[in-house]
Write a protein that binds this DNA or RNA. Structure first.
Lengths: 398, 398
DNA sequence: GTTATTTACTCAAGTAACTTGATTTAAGTA
DNA sequence: TACTTAAATCAAGTTACTTGAGTAAATAAC
């Protein structure tokens, strides 16, 4: 979402230093506990360099030295893990009707969350409310502001598109034309990342979910609509204008259900939170919240079962497209849908066997369930900050 | 295709140096002619550093000092351009029936190309033939081997998939289980990159085609089948197993034409070189080569016009999916299809207006025609080598 | 139980590449 | 002609990594 064009930047000693710190943190994150010699071998650095780096990271409270590794020959290695208490990040999801906030510690555990109804999310209302929320979250989670790595603000996309408001009801059109990141960095007095819900949720999965060691995967996010986040080689894909992953409006049925975007047969008219609500309402079933939906599943409600079948058929098409295009290690489904319903959906999928994804050496299932629940996007916002601080922006030097 | 897992690597002075050389080359490539102060500002380096780097690059023959910039106040800047004669790269496309070779100079100009029929492209036959071809290409293009940056070998994917041969007739199943890159590096005695045709063609577009200054775009490649290459932020997407972009087998018509992959209604049964050939044959029209196809278009042959209409309808679906998923600056169509036919296809596309891609601030057309012709993939192979040597592998430091 | 081997780690010196600040050069402008 | 602006150079300084010698602490072998 950051509109600033990323430019290739030259390196110098200082930037190299911070890059190497992230390389080390990223390695420890995925391989903890890890000894210094091991880190050095894997990261292509000298032991001495790693020694200096870990010393600083330990002083900064980001790494924790744990008991030495025994059972192997040679001097026992001092092993390091990420220090959960070393730092924290805040995520805020801004929705037209609510403000959701989550606080994660450095290992990605959610240590605080809250949801408040919010009637009119225009900038003038929302910005001060978010500032308050963030301050309350810091206080309620018993953290020091000095340890705050930053805030991730999650907003429904797409941004900067002509006729934007035609593209789905979940948008916040009043936020157009504002440098949102700059405004929040000034207001919140900390680094800020702005992102859409699906990408944020994907990053959450990478930081603390089913994909901590998966470098390349797709995340299909059930929000009001349907979004896609992709992590490729550990890096989130953003597209040229920050609107990567608008998967909800790919057409899976020519001449199908009328979508708010103007086209017919869009995927999200069949598979999304909004879709299941509408489908049930048409049979006179009201759906106040997630637990009601889970109950309908327990009851094997025939209308819901019908919806699952239809949704799974359309989702299968989309997932097959994703497998063919992205060649991912796995595809993860998550978001604002009860776990049981998500599991039922996944079980009902019908994926073609004659596919790229049907590899012999596959170690992960083709489709997994990820983090679900209504805090997913806010958690993702915080996860983006953790991710940024533990992920080198270069893939390799080669 | 390179199976070696890319790993985040720490930086040191030496790696920083080579990174910075690529940063500078990449900047000059896209902004030539460029002065040193200008480079320094854009790349986040000191003028002194850039001065040292350009000095070395000029000695190595990669940069060329051109006349000073006048008309502005201050001391005139010594400007640099890429030196076309400073180095060269070779690309080889391996097909079941032919070996195609192209040589590019450093600015991406094709300075030599050849095509030879080849009946049985199994490794034991093809490897020595490719070695010969490469040597001949160096000789015939009057280059010194010491200036060879490397060779890009282009092969039709997908690789390493169960039941691979079921996925289309263009594959080379005998190459499974071989470390192709290592074999070629040993045989050809130079750096080697292995890639599929679509990605190679996309990189060609970035190095020397319609996308030299476009950082994020999709390239739809018409080969025997249909492939997709994506450049995101200047980096080619490869997927977890090197099989990114198998767009030919996404299904655009449920219950449609039977595809060799076992499914029905795959995109490439409607839009590909093979598809047009089959379609015309069914009406008794034989298609020996590309110029015959171009002639049919000139004649406004009704069968071909029908095919174009159908193909464009299916392509429109796919392009709409790509726009929604990747949010690219533009989508480029290229490959083994006559320019005129490609232009007719593009003119016939029917893209939804209510789309992410329909931005007000759009500067590039939503769909462009790229490099076409039967040497496209081989040129792409060589372009990959140029690209690698002029593209920093890190996007940015912060 | 002693010695050998293996591996991790530390210390101190060395090095490569970038940065900084003062200075020079060469154009446009008043 | 003198002033302003901007690029480029020179020389010294800085930073973070590497190198090589040496130490420490475990397992393995005799």
């Amino acid at each position: 979402m950051t509109d600033k064009k990323l430019k290739a930047t030259g390196g110098n000693a200082g930037r190299n230093r911070s890059h190497n710190r992230r390389v080390v943190l990223n390695f420890v994150r995925a391989h903890e506990p890890a000894g210094r010699a091991e880190i050095a071998r894997s990261c292509g650095l000298s032991i001495q360099a790693v020694s200096n780096i870990t010393e600083v990271l330990e002083e900064d409270g980001l790494l924790l030295a744990v008991g030495p590794k025994t059972g192997v020959r040679g001097k026992p290695a001092t092993q390091y893990t990420i220090n959960p208490e070393g730092a924290f990040a805040i995520g805020v999801e801004v929705r037209p009707d609510a403000l959701i906030c989550a606080v994660l510690n450095l290992t990605g555990e959610c240590i605080y969350s809250e949801r408040q109804a919010f009637s009119n999310a225009v900038p003038d209302n929302a910005i001060p409310a978010i500032k308050e929320t963030v301050n309350r979250a810091i206080k309620n989670s018993n953290r020091k502001r000095s340890q705050l790595l930053g805030a991730g603000i999650v907003m429904p996309g797409p941004f900067g598109v002509s006729g934007l408001s035609a593209l789905g009801g979940a948008n916040l059109p009043e936020w157009g034309g504002i440098d949102i990141q700059a405004v929040f960095e000034q207001t919140l007095e900390c680094p800020v990342i702005i992102e859409n819900d699906a990408t944020a949720a994907a990053i959450a999965e990478r930081v603390t979910g089913a994909a901590t060691t998966v470098d390349t995967f797709c995340f299909v996010y059930f929000g009001t609509g349907l979004g896609l986040g992709v992590i490729a080689d550990g890096h989130a894909q953003r597209g040229a204008f920050g609107n990567f992953g608008e998967i909800g409006h790919i057409i899976t049925q020519t001449g199908g259900i009328q979508c708010a975007c103007g086209n017919r047969g869009c995927l999200e008219t069949y598979a999304s939170r909004m879709s299941v609500k509408t489908y049930l309402e048409q049979s006179g079933i009201d759906l106040p919240d997630g637990s009601a939906l889970a109950q309908l599943l327990t009851d094997e409600n025939p209308v819901l079962m019908e919806w699952i079948e239809t949704a799974a058929r359309h989702l299968s098409q989309a997932i097959s497209i994703l497998e063919n295009i992205f060649d991912p290690e796995t595809i993860i489904l998550g978001g604002a849908m009860p776990d049981a319903v998500m599991d039922a959906l996944i079980a009902t999928l019908d994926l073609p066997m004659g596919s790229l994804a049907n590899r012999e050496d596959r170690t992960l299932a083709r489709v997994l369930r990820g983090t679900s629940g209504r805090f997913t996007a806010a958690i993702g916002g915080a996860a983006m900050i953790i991710h940024k601080n533990t992920t080198p922006s270069l893939a390799l030097f080669s």
